[in-house]
């Protein structure tokens, strides 16, 4: 499942957005359904996420890795998670672009789902995933505004 989403952080400089989105305390607060988020090594986090997508609910445990970091414009996020309804394996490219309005964050993700998670409503799931990502960006936006 491919997901494309972009969000414009109005009047937020790219460096500020980078700092916000890299701050693990901020992430812990803003990641949807985040129950725990612990840095186990550099840029590798163990997390527990409660996810509820339509009829499928569950707690996913897994790790989040940041790789290929090019401050302040690019990083890749690798997420693997495992829960009762199945497994998640996501590879997301995050691009931060400077524009006149502010900073545009583009997320280009390839998400693989298994088990029940895959077989229930996956064909509508990319829409739902966009909503979830959108919520996350909104929360980040709030956090970033405080730093400007």
């Amino acid at each position: 499942m491919k997901i494309e989403h972009s969000y414009t952080f109005k009047s937020i400089p790219r460096e500020v957005l980078w700092r916000t989105i890299q701050d693990k305390e901020v992430l812990k607060r803003t990641l949807p359904g985040c129950k725990s988020f612990v840095e186990v090594e550099d840029n590798v986090f163990e997390s527990e996420l409660g996810i509820s997508i339509g009829p499928v609910k569950g707690i996913f445990t897994g790790d989040v890795r940041q790789v290929d970091r090019k401050e302040p414009e690019f990083y890749r996020l690798l997420v693997t998670g495992k829960g009762k309804p199945g497994e998640i394996d996501a590879d997301a490219e995050m691009v931060l672009l400077e524009t006149e309005e502010g900073t545009v964050l583009q997320c280009l993700a390839d998400v693989k789902l298994t088990g029940i998670l895959a077989s229930v409503g996956q064909r509508v799931m990319s829409g739902i995933a966009k909503v979830v990502i959108g919520q996350f960006f909104k929360e980040i936006d709030k956090e970033a505004k405080q730093l400007v």
């Binding site: 499942m1 009829p55 693989k112 789902l113 029940i116 895959a118 077989s119 229930v120 996956q122 064909r123």
Partner: peptide
């Protein structure tokens, strides 16, 4: 099924 062999039609909703 998708290219990973995951079944996408696992309920009477799908």
């Amino acid at each position: 099924y998708n290219e990973e062999g995951q079944l996408l039609t696992g309920t009477f909703m799908d």
